[in-house]
């Protein structure tokens, strides 16, 4: 799998590695997918990178590759900003080859990372018709998570027709941030758009939402989909090629 802009892949890994330290990559002719849960089974990430999004892609037989995302992140940190990236696994090999090429083709770096045997648990995620779908700048969402974490461990997300309100309370007191829907969309990237069938009020652990925000550099916009008594879905699109979707179980009444 070759990417002209290897930085896209580095951003994917950076977006996942805090939530899941290691994961099994499923490779097929259609592309690369991954599903993994955090160790406490509260959050899940689902990644799709379709084959047509790569400069070139070939997969002769389906493979499951156990990879340490922490190690991969370290390797990818050595990559130059404009380097291209090729990922390769040879038949019967126990390692993955990560090759980087500088833009003017005067530097070539190759790394081999050992593959791991991982027990992976797969969950069936039903197609959900969410009550609310919010789109907002991903930088804004990151900031809200950071700001709400000052006040408490949990954030209550409430939606109305007018907007969406994030609030948190704790020993210090309480705080809230309300975003109103953008009425005059000039720049789509900066818009706050709320599609609502029913109002929702759900509470989530801020710590996990903040971890999801590590994927924010992938996309200028984030999508939050919410329904009562349903895990939140937080989506970052990977330009033209797929998405990273995070799911987070809500906090529920005792």
């Amino acid at each position: 799998a070759r990417l002209l802009h290897g930085s896209i892949f580095a951003k994917v890994i950076e977006g996942l590695r805090e939530l899941v330290n290691e994961a099994t990559w499923e490779c097929s002719g259609n592309g690369i997918t991954l599903q993994a849960m955090d160790s406490s089974h509260v959050a899940l990430v689902s990644l799709v990178m379709r084959s047509e999004g790569f400069e070139s892609y070939r997969c002769d037989r389906n493979m499951s590759l156990g990879i340490s995302l922490v190690s991969m992140s370290k390797v990818l940190k050595t990559m130059g900003k404009d380097d291209s990236l090729t990922i390769r696994v040879n038949d019967d090999s126990d390692s993955i080859i990560i090759a980087m090429e500088s833009q003017n083709q005067d530097k070539f770096a190759d790394y081999e990372l050992r593959l791991m045997d991982l027990d992976s648990e797969h969950l069936g995620i039903p197609d959900t018709d969410y009550s609310c779908a919010i789109k907002m700048p991903s930088s804004e969402f990151s900031r809200i998570c950071r700001d709400m974490s000052i006040m408490g461990d949990s954030v209550l997300i409430c939606t109305t027709k007018e907007g969406v309100k994030f609030s948190a309370k704790g020993d210090l007191g309480q705080g809230s941030i309300r975003l109103v829907q953008t009425t005059n969309i000039e720049k789509e990237e900066e818009a706050v758009i709320i599609e609502m069938k029913e109002a929702v009020a759900l509470t989530f652990a801020v710590r996990y939402l903040s971890m999801f925000c590590k994927a924010a550099p992938l996309s200028p916009q984030v999508g939050l989909s919410l329904s009562e008594d349903t895990p939140l879905m937080c989506e970052f699109k990977i330009a033209e090629m797929g998405h990273v979707r995070f799911y987070l179980a809500p906090k529920i009444e005792d």
Binding site: M37, S40, H41, V42, A43, L44, E121, H122, L123, G124, I125, P126, S154, T203, A205, T230, P231, Y247, A249, P250, K251, I252, E253, D254
Partner: peptide
């Protein structure tokens, strides 16, 4: 008080 649920409460094992 609120309890943190796990994803298995919502999604099936596949």
């Amino acid at each position: 008080s609120l309890l943190q649920s796990t994803l298995q409460c919502f999604f099936n094992q596949s």
